[in-house]
Simulated scan of single mutants.
Amino acid sequence: MNASCLIVYSSMTGNTEEIANLIGEGIQKTDGSVTIKDILEVDVTDLQDYDGILLGAYTWGDGELPDEYLDFYHEMDQLNLTGKIAAAFGSCDSSYEHHGGAVDILAKKLAELGADIVLEGLKIDLSPTETGIEQCIKFGHSFVEKLLFS
């Protein structure tokens, strides 16, 4: 079975985009197919066309979603994601009180819409280090395993 995954991300400095691409690499190494789209290039209904959904965002301000994610986030309310496997990720800054708040917001929204959250949100501090790179690839690999064997 080929697991189809969609990664949707927003990135200001390129960190979250790098994380998205590394997760995608992990998915492909596990024989999953992956489509990676910037938040501004995706329609919310696209989420229904994939077996697995990964949403990523950097955390803005006091633990919030970035502005460019807000319309998409609110439009998600029209979806029923029951039967979908999902997870959230993002670049974070540990110097802020709400470390990776956007990751938690996205995971909560996916769960509210019926998706099965199969991995704890991946929070990478700023830009992925060598260890972070391995974490991202493993996250993609683990996601496909959960998708195939759930």
Rank of each mutant, 00 (worst) to 15 (best):
G100I: 12
D38A: 10
Y58P: 05
D51L: 09
G63E: 04
D43A: 15
S142W: 09
V44C: 12
E134D: 11
E17K: 15
G83T: 04
Y50M: 06
G140F: 03
Q135M: 10
L79F: 06
I36N: 01
A87R: 02
K123S: 04
A86P: 02
G90D: 06
F143I: 01
I105C: 00
Q28L: 10
I105A: 00
E64C: 11
M76A: 03
S150F: 12
I53V: 15
G14T: 07
K109E: 07
L106E: 03
D125F: 15
D116V: 09
M76P: 01
A3L: 08
C5G: 02
I137E: 00
L54Q: 03
I19G: 00
E25H: 08
D104S: 12
E134F: 12
N80K: 14
E97Q: 14
G121P: 04
L113E: 08
A86M: 07
V8C: 08
K84T: 04
G52C: 13
D71P: 03
Q78H: 09
L79I: 11
G14D: 10
I19S: 02
A57Q: 03
H141N: 09
H98M: 12
A111Y: 10
D51E: 15
L122N: 05
E112S: 11
M12E: 10
A102Q: 05
N80P: 00
Q135Y: 11
I53N: 05
D104C: 08
C92H: 04
G61M: 12
D67Y: 08
T13W: 06
S11Q: 08
V34M: 04
I85K: 05
S95W: 14
G132C: 09
L65S: 00
A3T: 14
K146L: 08
Q48Y: 12
Y96R: 08
K37T: 13
D51C: 06
G121R: 06
K146A: 10
G90Y: 03
A86F: 01
S91Q: 02
G52Q: 01
G61P: 06
D104L: 10
I7L: 08
E41N: 15
A102V: 07
G121N: 07
D125L: 13
V144C: 06
K138Y: 07
N80M: 09
I133P: 02
P128K: 14
F72V: 11
Y73V: 07
D31Q: 13
A86D: 05
Y96M: 08
G132V: 10
L106D: 02
H74Y: 14
G26T: 09
G52V: 15
V42C: 10
I36L: 05
H98G: 07
H141M: 06
S150W: 11
S91D: 09
S94T: 13
S94K: 15
I23P: 00
D62V: 09
L55Q: 06
L119T: 00
